[in-house]
Amino acid sequence: MAEEMKVIVFALGQEEYGIEVDKVRTIERIQPITRVPKAPAFIKGVINLRGVVIPVIDLRGRFGLEETVTTDNSRIIIVAANELEVGFIVDSANDVIDIDSEAIDTPPEVVGGIKAKYLHGIAKIGEKRLLVMLNLSEVLNRKEIIQLEQLEV
């Protein structure tokens, strides 16, 4: 049951991550972001994407990693899943590759400090390259935001 799938590759720190290409609407350069008061810290704010207001989250912050300043290589990946459209700030995004669905293994408990539930699996590409596949519906799970809110209150 081997299936080829196209994956957008992006980087957070030293790690490489993948999102299926059909979940990605567009990749944008960093642009001015309007801060939204009272929102969880990893929500950086909202941007205007061709007339539509889209929230942008810092993936590092979402995963509880240390946040860094954006560089020229930083990108906003706009993904659409669960009828939501959200932008991810990532360190860089510069590759599209084909991977075999059989090459994806279930993730170990913790990868680079990211809880396993956010991960769909680990794909092995070639000999040394490892790609962490994101579980978008968990990453975009709104329940956690609500819980976070309650914690802050």
């Binding site: 939204v36 008061p37 909202v46 935001i145």
Partner: peptide, 12 residues
Amino acid sequence: SLGKYLPSIKSI
């Protein structure tokens, strides 16, 4: 609209 993702924010 601010989209469905953001939690509703009082005062906005």
